[in-house]
């Protein structure tokens, strides 16, 4: 890489792009955190982002306002999540298979509706889609470095990062959050004190739908104002990786999202320089595997130390 000036790659805007790239993943992650804290392994996040992105466009065209689009997206995602919940919780279908089914169903549905509702194939772009406008934060925007970094983003970016705190509050500071987590961690314990696990799982899935709706509308109504087939580009899977990486804790998962966002942003930049962005795009998935391995190694160390203690106690006896 001798010929390439690294300072041209690692610029301020790279970090600003990081926030932008992390946003949709972060929304899906926050949604997935709810379902996974309630004990549902939701592999349908990719589908939910897809549905959200599509209906955001529809809503924006229909109402002429990005907020209307957001509303459409949220409602559509919540309905999808409720459908998931009914099939899983009432009809007792395997959650993983339902999630995979949702991914397939959603890709078919959005493409189908794209043709029948918006009369285009694979791709829809139009002046009728009203996207969000960027927000300049007064005062901060005038501060040299901070301004470039923090100001001038789309509102959903701020909402995403603010939501991390919100989700943290909900999960760790309210009775609702306590009940939700208890259902996921020890269902018997929750039931023994009168908490209804099914109800909590439904609620968690609804919240999951809400956040995925936000994530989807960011994809199609902010930086880009269009819908295209496959525009989610695996962000749902990334969110799943982030949840795994962060053990479904909001702040730890945020870190994962930022890392993934940075990898995305860096990949974009490298592409401009004709460097292999694909390798960088592999990083989020590889790092998830590395983290899983790392924590398994740490667990085994602890166990080994304990066994050694037992063993020495035993030999002392004989």
């Amino acid at each position: 890489m001798g010929g390439i000036d690294l300072s041209r790659i690692f610029t301020l805007s790279l970090f600003a792009t990081t926030f932008r790239m992390a946003t949709p993943v972060l929304f899906a992650t926050l949604g997935g955190i709810f379902s996974s804290q309630a004990g549902i392994f939701n592999v349908g996040l990719e589908a939910l982002l897809n549905i959200g992105a599509f209906f955001a466009v529809v809503g924006s065209v229909n109402t002429g306002s990005p907020v209307g689009g957001l509303l459409y997206a949220v409602v559509a995602c919540v309905i999808a999540c409720l459908f998931f919940s009914v099939v899983h919780l009432e009809l007792k279908a395997n959650a993983i298979i339902v999630g995979l089914a949702m991914n397939i169903f959603a890709s078919g549905m959005t493409n189908y509706l794209l043709v029948t509702m918006l009369d285009s194939t694979g791709f829809y772009q139009s002046d009728l889609i009203i996207g969000f406008k960027t927000v300049e934060i007064p005062f901060i925007k005038d501060i040299p470095v901070l301004g470039d970094l923090l100001s001038g983003h789309f509102p959903l970016v701020y909402i995403a990062f603010f939501s991390v705190w919100l989700v943290y509050l909900i999960l760790y500071k309210t009775p609702f959050g306590f009940h939700l987590r208890s259902v996921g961690e020890n269902q018997d314990a929750a039931e023994s004190v009168g908490i209804n696990p099914k109800k909590m799982r439904y609620l968690s899935m609804i919240l999951c739908g809400v956040f995925c709706g936000f994530g989807g509308s960011f994809l199609s109504l902010s930086y880009l104002t269009l819908f295209s087939e496959g525009m989610t580009a695996g962000r749902g899977w990334l969110a799943l990786a982030a949840i795994n990486f962060g053990e479904a804790k909001p702040v730890r998962s945020l870190i994962a999202c930022l890392v993934f966002g940075f990898a995305d942003a860096l990949a974009l930049r490298l592409q401009q320089f004709g460097l292999p962005s694909q390798v960088v795009l592999m990083l989020p998935y590889v790092s998830t595997l590395v983290v899983l391995l790392g924590s398994a190694i740490a667990d085994e160390r602890k166990r080994k130390a304990l066994n050694a203690k037992h063993r020495s106690a035993e030999t002392a006896l004989t």
Partner: peptide, 10 residues
């Protein structure tokens, strides 16, 4: 296809 899969483990 998707709906078949939804119900296949039901």
């Amino acid at each position: 296809k998707g709906s078949i899969m939804f119900f296949v483990t039901v």
